[in-house]
Design a protein around this nucleic acid. Structure first.
Length: 367
RNA sequence: GCACAGGUGGCCGAGCGGUUAAUGGCAGCAGACUGUAAAUCUGCCGCUCCUUGGAGCUACGGAGGUUCGAAUCCUCCCCUGUGCA
């Protein structure tokens, strides 16, 4: 049995509270998933992630395939075991790299030829190949191989991109169903199996988004993601596309908006009925000195914090805010100390996870 | 004391007659970051004015000199490094 999605409550606005039962972890949704592309949520150790309450994190097919390689990881018992993470994981398919590595790739119907960003070597990714790698990695949830449509994309381009993503979704699903039993997990997980999500594309065209959602639902995935958002488009368009697609997705399966967002965005989308979100923003911004706080953005590099004895966020009770001053965090940043990335990331993740915790509470069944 | 090599904007370091307020790098200041090619990237960075664009002032150890014009050439002085005494 793949995942189980137990709906606990739903509001008139569409927001919903559920339990997502995955092989390695029961995840309380709506959930924010920290991104750990290369087998690590950058700068944050696994035990700290656990203490922060992270129940599911991401990994990336493309990066782990290049280094250390999916076969070595499979031989070592899968990604969970390799990185020592007992809770849930989701692997992205490499679809986003089709977008972000635009200078280093060539797309055909068959698949994508990538030049490795590490050494320039050439690699060919197909939906089947992405699925094989994801099965080898063995995350709780795998993603269909898609093409993340760039913004702006004219209608012809969006249609062509969608055609490709839909064909790849079919091939991803067929291949996944034929090989899913090959997944290697180092312990019995109650007979639960890996799940596969389809990804809605369609650029910024409502009808293409609709078509994409309907076709994916017909294919019957374990869950559905909305991709191709937050790629440079204005916020109201992002919202419009999500609003268009959500009602078309089955109520009894998880809905995942990929790659969002700012603190206020994830709260907004969660209240609309999005169950899962992931974003590099809290961790990347942290490494660059941007802290998200209850008082708004705080650029800890600022000279004005040089002797500030207060915590990063007065309203935060995370392990960083309880112990360290802004002056110290600024010093670490300026000194280029590795601890800077760690402490900043911990705070930002605590802030993001805290938002979702609060939203879940407000979406919980009365009484 | 002699011989070389040097003294450039907060630091390091290019430039070696005019397009040089002076390449770069670092430091500093500000900003960006949305399924991670990101501990990255962008802008500013002598001083004072006005509106973009500019105007003025001060600057390449010091003092003189050559020249229409000098960070760049010459003289003397000061200082630093290395070698020989």
């Amino acid at each position: 049995m793949p995942l189980q999605f137990n709906l606990l409550n739903q509001t008139v606005a569409g927001g919903r509270r559920a339990q997502l039962i995955l092989p390695h972890q029961t995840v309380e949704t709506p959930v924010f998933m920290p991104v750990g592309t290369a087998g690590t949520v950058k700068a944050v150790p696994q035990d700290v992630l656990e203490n922060l309450g992270a129940e599911i994190i991401l990994g990336n097919t493309y990066h782990l395939y290049l280094r250390p390689g999916h076969e070595p990881i499979r031989r070592m018992g899968g990604l969970h075991r390799f990185i020592s993470w007992q809770r849930a994981m989701l692997t992205d398919s490499g679809g986003f790299q089709v977008f972000s590595l635009s200078q280093l790739r060539k797309v055909t119907d068959e698949g994508v030829r990538f030049r490795s960003h590490l050494d320039g070597s050439s690699h060919f990714f197909t939906p089947e190949h992405s699925i094989d790698i994801q099965i080898a990695l063995g995350a709780d949830i795998a993603m269909a191989f898609d093409e993340c449509t760039e913004y702006p994309a004219d209608r012809a381009r969006a249609e062509e991109s969608l055609r490709l993503t839909m064909a790849w979704a079919r091939r991803s699903l067929d291949h996944f169903q034929a090989h899913r039993e090959k997944v290697v997990w180092h312990k019995d997980l109650g007979g639960r199996t890996q799940s596969l999500f389809g990804i809605v594309q369609g650029g910024m065209y409502r009808d293409l988004r609709r078509e994409s959602a309907e076709r994916l639902v017909d294919m019957d995935f374990d869950g559905y993601a909305i991709g191709g958002l937050s790629v440079g488009e204005p916020r109201d368009l992002t919202l419009e596309m999500i609003s268009e697609v959500l009602p078309l997705l089955p109520a009894d399966k998880p809905r995942y908006v990929m790659g969002v967002g700012y603190p206020d965005e994830i709260e907004q989308y969660a209240r609309m009925g999005v169950d899962m979100m992931d974003c590099v923003l809290p961790t990347r911004a942290a490494r660059h000195g941007l802290l998200f706080t209850s008082e708004g953005r705080l650029n800890i590099k600022g000279k004005k914090y040089a002797e500030d004895q207060g915590p990063a966020d007065p309203a935060c009770d995370c392990m960083v805010c309880r112990r360290y001053t802004r002056a110290y965090l600024r010093h670490l940043m300026h000194a280029g100390e590795a601890l800077s990335a760690t402490l900043n990331s911990i705070h930002n993740l605590a802030y993001y996870l805290g938002i979702m915790k609060r939203v879940r509470k407000s979406l919980a069944p009365a009484g």
